[in-house]
């Protein structure tokens, strides 16, 4: 049981990092990216390759993954500088599709659809270490950085851009730099999550970085509450724990287990959005439809 809970907690921490970093650009900067799984994937492949080719040092893998994902965040930042709203959603959708195709085709780097297998268990300075403590530490760092950045001038700039980009620019805010930095931070964080995921599962392939996962992480942010510190984390806990919890329902016959779980899962999410439209931690006055 402890091992199971430990695995679940590790996945919660990893997806918590993903949700928290996506929330940074969605909730604070108003950049609605549905390509976050791309940077998760970049980090996973980078971390996996470090572990396979050099050494499975978890810190080294995370740093390399953050550098790769953060560096390539320009792919997302560039369209974010030119388009907003639904147009940016379409642009990020295109990025997601291109990236998934590349992940499937760049076999020397990603193993193609077959993926990378046999990723060694992580170490820290040569000592074997579990992914859970590292993931929790990384999550804490991401949340701390988010809180500090959001509370400072940078956070206020991002909020201003989110609420009225033209007004922020007119007031002398460097919109391009702020957006680029925000996207870079979020994508680097997603890269760290990816490296941890690769080291945790010992296997990565493109199926973990598809549009479904981008949407799942977006749902975590929205259900928890965008623009809040703890909301995405709570959304993560709910969206990952609910299916895990439903698996314990003893009355579901084996052949119907998937369908019933998915129905209950979807129903719970729908009800949640009806009664908490701004997310669990979000401002109650936001999100409701008005006549």
């Amino acid at each position: 049981m402890i091992a199971y809970l430990s695995n679940l907690a590790t996945q919660l921490a990893i997806f918590g990092i993903l949700a928290a970093t996506l929330n940074f650009i969605v909730g604070y900067a108003g950049i609605f990216s549905i390509a976050h799984a791309v940077f998760f994937g970049l980090g996973a492949y980078a971390g996996a390759q470090i572990a396979l080719l050099l050494v499975p040092d978890v810190v080294l893998a995370c740093l390399f993954a953050a550098a790769i994902a953060g560096g390539l965040s320009l792919c997302l930042a560039l369209p974010a500088l030119r388009v907003r709203g639904e147009y940016f959603v379409a642009a990020s959708l295109g990025l997601q599709m291109v990236a998934v195709t590349l992940f499937a085709e760049l076999k020397p780097l990603t193993g193609g659809i077959g993926g990378l297998v046999g990723i060694p268990l992580p170490t820290l300075f040569g000592v074997p270490v579990g992914v859970l403590p590292v993931a929790l530490a990384a999550l804490a760092l991401v949340l701390l950085a988010t809180a500090l950045l959001a509370r400072g001038a940078f956070g206020r700039t991002l909020t201003a851009i989110r609420d009225a980009e033209s007004a922020a620019e007119a007031l002398g805010k460097n919109v391009a730099a702020a957006k680029t930095l925000a996207v870079g931070f979020a994508c680097a964080g997603a890269g760290v999550a990816g490296a941890l995921y690769a080291l945790h599962t010992s296997f990565v392939n493109v199926e973990s970085f598809t549009m479904e996962y981008s949407v799942l992480v977006m749902a975590m942010v929205i259900i928890g509450g965008t623009g809040t510190l703890w909301g995405p984390l709570i959304g993560t806990v709910i969206l990952l724990s609910l299916p895990a919890g439903l698996a314990f329902l003893p009355f579901i016959p084996p052949s119907e287990v998937g369908a019933i779980q998915q129905i209950l899962y979807g129903l719970a999410m729908t009800l949640l959005m009806i009664f908490r439209p701004a997310g669990l931690v979000g401002d109650l006055s936001r999100g409701r439809a008005t006549a």
Binding site: M1, Y4, L5, Y28, A147, A150, R151, G155, G225, G227, T228, L229, W230, L233, I234, V237, I238, L240, S241, L242, A244, G245, L246, A247, F248, L249, L280, V281, G282, D283
Partner: peptide
């Protein structure tokens, strides 16, 4: 940043609701 005063209680409740207790 919107951190409601009742955040901790809400968070705990939400986490408790999401965790599979039959474990």
């Amino acid at each position: 940043m919107h951190i409601a005063p009742t955040l901790r209680r809400r968070g705990l409740l939400a986490a408790a609701a999401g965790l599979p207790l039959p474990f």
